[in-house]
Design a protein around this nucleic acid. Structure first.
Length: 560
RNA sequence: UGCCCGAUGGUGUAAUGGUAGCACAACUGACUCUGGAUCAGUCAGUCUAGGUUCGAGUCCUAGUCGGGCAACCA
């Protein structure tokens, strides 16, 4: 994992390298500009890794800027969660924390400058008329009757808009560009609206707010951003971005570059839909371990490095794509295989009785903490006459290649002894297997036979008396289809919700797990990677989230 | 029936006019005290048609398919 954060080559890095080579900038500056109207998700992580990564790669800087120009949807709670998430992902904006709202006065002055230059006017059209005049993509728009107001009148009206003399929506400031443009965004777009809403930072100081298209390029220019990287849907906005900066006396003219946003199988990524899941309590919250949010992934047990590795592997292009979530899962398995301590946990327990083992005796065997890392050492694991094993590790009538317990077959108890299955006990009424019986070979302590005989199967176990109850949450994908957004007529993405996305069970685990601290990760051998939940664990009473199951080639091949 | 963008194995990407490579997934086998990991291997790709060129995934033309754009959202 040492090369996890090595820079990756892609078209944006190439362009910046070219700009650097040509000496076009003193210092490269990028920015991550979230709107504080929701929690960050894995798609934002891609953008964060890109922007901060590029800055680092080219010895530049990356600003964290809250694009808070629409008070209606924005809240301080989101601001703090976003800062926490960016920091957790491993990035540092130093003292370059900015808010678009800090530029409101300057932006207002730029708006007056635009009016004074005859490039903007106050329009009195209603929203309906506005839409009608704009036309449609295949038909040009027509000029607003207010398009030719005098500069003096526009200035007066705009100042009175700011002063609060008009109702919300009564007037709007528009850039005066080209109503016949094939690009809708150039047909005199609205750049300031009247909106009385309490802003999370400026309070009630303003009743007019700049629109994205007007604000964003100015924010970039004010900060001295060199490369303004955004997603593909803003491509058609670029002519407007450039036009505005060309009209105004800004300090510099950043380059907007677009890349394809991340799409992941079996999940939804739009803030609107994620908000809906939270609001309607379909999930436990923004940080529900099944959510693709950064906070959800964190609680699920993903590490910052695994998410960075993922973002590196998916690359950066202009091609719309759908990334297989298996790649994300690979990244966390890859890291945790190397770093996570192992422990034995029986998820679906059934009793195993060792007929020839002395009753009442307990001995402690050495369990290897991490076979990938000898330095992790060993731990004592209690062993006794009565154990729990997985119900699925015994079959009375088993296929030939079933290497686990079946009558007459010898298997290895991990770190323990070799045992030979003698049969099972059944409930006389239901016929259900209630216990498996076996005999052990005392000469095989630790798991090796002195005569060197080979044993194919190794199963995990815990001592019945010495184990602890362990609440587990076995998470599965939130949706049952790879593209939940694909819904038939009249359908809804929620129709694809997986009713079994969280299975809560109580397992039997090694005693040491009873004192696991919140945030500690383990590999439960043969089962998967787990983390002690940061919210629901109590001292001495951890609750484990399954981060991701281990790959299981046997189970896959023999399912049903 | 407008404008913009895109198209390489199942998926994500690389190749910057010169051997189509890597990763994930899937499948085989080897090894293994996790049916994990590891190792070896297999499967499988340049949207179509013309053109330029000694040579085209790459350049040109025309199509096809996909995405985006008609909030006083970002």
């Amino acid at each position: 994992m040492a090369d996890t954060d090595e820079p990756v080559a892609h078209f944006i890095a190439d362009r910046i390298a070219e700009d650097v080579q040509q000496g076009r900038h003193e210092r490269i500056m990028t920015r991550f500009p979230p709107e504080p109207n929701g929690y960050l998700h894995i798609g934002h992580a891609k953008s964060i890794c890109l922007n901060f990564g590029l800055a680092e790669q080219f010895a530049g800087v990356c600003n964290l800027r809250f694009d808070d120009t629409n008070p209606a949807a924005e809240e301080a709670e989101y601001v703090s969660s976003i800062m926490e998430d960016v920091r957790w992902l491993g990035f540092d904006w130093g003292n370059r924390l900015y808010y678009a709202s800090d530029y409101f006065e300057r932006m207002y002055q730029y708006a007056e400058e635009l009016i004074a230059a005859g490039h903007a006017y106050v329009c009195t059209l209603t929203p309906e008329e506005f839409k009608d005049y704009r036309g449609v993509p295949t038909r040009p728009g027509k000029a607003s009757p207010w398009r030719d107001r005098s500069i003096e009148e526009n200035l007066d009206l705009f100042r009175r808009m700011r002063a609060g003399e008009f109702e919300d929506g009564a007037y709007v400031l528009r850039a005066k560009i080209d109503m016949g443009s094939p690009n809708l965004h150039m047909r005199d777009p609205a750049i300031y609206r009247i909106k009385r809403a309490h802003h999370h930072r400026t309070g009630d100081k303003w009743c007019i707010y700049p629109m994205y298209d007007f604000a964003h390029g100015l924010e970039d220019a004010i900060e001295g951003v060199t490369h303004s990287i955004c997603t593909l849907e803003f491509e058609v906005h670029r002519p407007l971005y450039d036009w505005l900066l060309d009209q105004l006396s800004v300090p510099c003219h950043p380059q907007q570059i677009e890349f394809a946003r991340l799409n992941l199988t079996y999940t939804v990524m739009s803030k609107r839909k994620l908000l809906e899941l939270v609001r309607d309590k379909v999930v436990w919250g923004w940080d529900d371990p099944r959510m693709p949010t950064v906070s959800g992934l964190r609680r699920r047990g993903y590490t910052p490095a695994s998410i960075r590795a993922f973002c590196r592997k998916i690359g950066v292009t202009k091609t719309e794509s759908l990334t297989d979530i298996a790649l994300l899962e690979h990244c966390i398995r890859d890291e945790l295989n190397a770093s996570a301590s192992r422990a034995m946990v029986v998820v679906d327990p059934i009793k195993l009785v060792i007929e020839n083992y002395p009753a009442g005796q307990v001995e402690y065997l050495d369990g290897v903490n991490n076979p990938e890392d000898p330095a992790a050492g060993t731990r004592p694991v209690a062993f006794s006459k009565e154990l729990y094993i997985e119900r699925g590790d015994f079959m009375e009538e088993a296929p030939k290649k079933f290497y686990r317990l079946k009558p007459g077959q010898e298997v290895r108890l991990r770190y323990g002894y070799l045992v030979t299955c003698t049969g099972c006990e059944k409930d006389p009424v239901t016929g259900e297997v209630v216990a498996v019986t076996c005999t052990y070979d005392p000469e095989t302590r630790g798991g090796n036979a002195p005569d060197g005989r080979r044993v194919r199967g190794t199963i995990h176990w815990v001592s019945k008396q010495e184990c602890v109850d362990l609440p587990l949450r076995l998470f599965d994908r939130l949706f049952t289809v790879d593209v939940p957004d694909d819904v038939p007529e009249g359908g809804h993405f929620r129709d694809h919700l997986n009713p079994d996305s969280c299975q809560e069970i109580v397992a039997k685990g090694e005693a040491l797990l009873g004192s696991a601290q919140p945030g500690e990760r383990y590999q439960f051998e043969r089962t998967g990677y787990f983390i002690a939940d940061s919210k629901d664990s109590q001292p001495g009473k951890p609750v484990f989230n399954r981060i991701v199951p281990l790959k299981d080639s046997w189970g896959k091949k023999h399912k049903r």
